[in-house]
């Protein structure tokens, strides 16, 4: 977020031009933003809360968007901050998410479960950078802006996260 704000380009407009535009923006991007948040928090409902908070903060801070990255990237940067704040606050106790705890395992989902377990061993920022690259296919420059770092730093982060994921996935049980 900070990274985007240092680049001075356009005044607030487009999605934040007025309330109707913002409404459209939320509807258009919410699924994507929730999915991004989901990489960092425990379940979909939590991810929705985080995305909701991120939209709210974006609206409140709309005047600080100076361009230099896509609006969605800026929105993701805010969402990342919201998620990290949330994760810091909830360290003391961890609940098992209802939706995932109750899901019955099946052979078809074994690989998925292995991936989930491996991802769970990473920190939130590692999961975020992996998702932005492997899931969203963002270039390093854009992903870096969402993560508040330069393209080069993002590339390094990604490589490290990838190594950690592969180590975790390779070392899985069964």
């Amino acid at each position: 977020m900070e990274y985007c704000e240092t680049v001075t380009l356009a005044a607030p407009r487009g999605a934040f031009a007025d309330e109707a535009a913002f409404d459209g923006w939320v509807r258009e991007t919410q699924k994507s933003l929730v999915r991004f948040c989901r990489q960092m928090v425990d379940d979909w409902a939590e991810a929705e809360d985080m995305a909701q908070e991120a939209y709210l903060r974006a609206w409140e801070k709309r005047g600080s968007f100076k361009g230099g990255c896509s609006l969605l990237t800026w929105q993701m940067a805010i969402a990342r901050r919201v998620c990290l704040d949330r994760l810091r606050r909830q360290k003391r106790v961890k609940l098992i998410p209802l939706d995932e705890r109750d899901a019955a395992p099946s052979p078809d989902t074994e690989t998925k479960a292995d991936v989930q377990r491996a991802l769970a061993k990473l920190n939130a920022d590692d999961r975020a950078v992996l998702y932005l690259r492997a899931g969203e296919g963002l270039p390093f420059e854009e992903a870096g802006k969402a993560l508040g770092c330069s393209a080069a730093a993002c590339r390094k982060r990604y490589e490290r996260a990838k190594q950690r994921f592969e180590a975790a996935y390779g070392g899985r049980e069964g």
């Binding site: 309330e19 109707a20 409404d23 939320v26 919410q30 929730v34 995305a51 909701q52 939209y55 609206w59």
Partner: peptide
């Protein structure tokens, strides 16, 4: 998503 954001409410 069940997001609860609309411009008016955000305002």
């Amino acid at each position: 998503p069940f997001l609860a954001v609309t411009p008016a409410e955000a305002t």
